[in-house]
């Protein structure tokens, strides 16, 4: 009850300061409009994925969904020139593998810098910070050449393994450790006779869970959406990931004949991410600010 009174007081005060309610209304209207601007594309996508090929070919605009959603889904599943399930599986393997390796080894590397004192620590740390902003694109040429030399083109290895060295994730983990991982815990474990590697796996990793969760999601999504490198590395049909299949939709003209299937394919490519995001949005939005601002 006291809380309500306090709110009442607060509101009275606002009336006095004036305009705040008006500002709140304006802010809410603008925000709703902006949210609509963000969401309308997904609504249009859904509508069009539920329309028949013939209806879509008329080029008309519809506000309400049609009844071809499942037919389009069925057709897409049975379209022999688009290996959608396989693509999805490939995407999951690559993104999942990337997320696991990236978070584990980034945490390990961050822990090395955080928990130990060694001669080259400063140099190595600065080095990792320096390479953080080098885009992967500028070394892509040498990367494909090297992968050809070691016969790794058209495999998942060049898309998963490199994530062991992820400076951005490393940096996030380091920041997180600075604020949450007291070195005394590590020392206590040492006194208990725990080996260093064991300490990391059984004590440090569990404490880092929130940070690992956030970074796992970011890494997974980043890898799921990645188009540039996989397009250069993967060649055979059965290895292609979803973004490459989407690009194929765009370039192989004949595939565009059934627009219902095209929309369905786009929907299936982004739907999993939307579901995961909505389920975990609390961590993600918080994580963005946490990771980037401290730098």
């Amino acid at each position: 009850m006291g809380k309500d009174n306090a709110m009442q007081l607060q509101m009275d005060k606002e009336k006095v300061t004036g305009g705040i309610r008006a500002r709140r209304v304006v802010a809410n209207i603008v925000l709703v409009l902006i949210c609509l601007l963000c969401l309308i594309w997904f609504y249009l996508l859904f509508i069009n994925a539920s329309r028949s090929r013939a209806d879509l070919s008329m080029g008309s605009f519809r506000v309400l969904p049609g009844n071809y959603f499942f037919k389009n889904f069925y057709n897409l599943m049975h379209n022999s020139s688009l290996t959608i399930w396989r693509g999805m599986l490939n995407s999951i393997i690559i993104s999942g593998g990337t997320a696991v390796l990236c978070t584990y080894f980034s945490t390990l590397s961050a822990y090395a810098i955080h928990a130990y004192d060694f001669k080259l620590k400063g140099v190595l740390f600065t080095f990792i910070l320096l390479i953080m902003t080098i885009p992967t694109q500028v070394s892509a040429l040498g990367f494909i050449k090297l992968m050809r030399v070691v016969h790794l083109t058209d495999t998942f290895v060049p898309l998963i393994l490199p994530s062991i060295a992820a400076p951005v994730t490393f940096f996030y983990m380091k920041q997180y450790m600075d604020s949450t991982l007291p070195i005394q815990i590590v020392e206590a474990a040492r006194i208990d006779g725990s080996g260093e590697f064991r300490t990391f796996n059984t004590i440090v990793l569990p404490m880092m869970k929130p940070a690992i969760a956030v970074q796992a999601i970011f890494t997974f999504v980043g890898s799921w959406n990645n188009y540039f490198t996989p397009a250069l590395i993967l060649k055979s049909e059965e290895n292609k990931t979803l973004p490459i299949l989407i690009a194929k939709l765009r370039s192989a003209d004949f595939l565009k004949f059934d627009m219902g299937q095209v929309y369905m394919m786009i929907l299936l490519s982004i739907f999993p991410v939307i579901v995961v995001y909505l389920a975990l949005s609390k961590f993600i939005v918080g994580g963005v600010a946490l990771g980037s601002v401290k730098g």
Partner: peptide
């Protein structure tokens, strides 16, 4: 978080 290639195709 949306796949840029899918968003562009859309």
């Amino acid at each position: 978080l949306i796949m840029a290639s899918a968003f562009s195709m859309l």
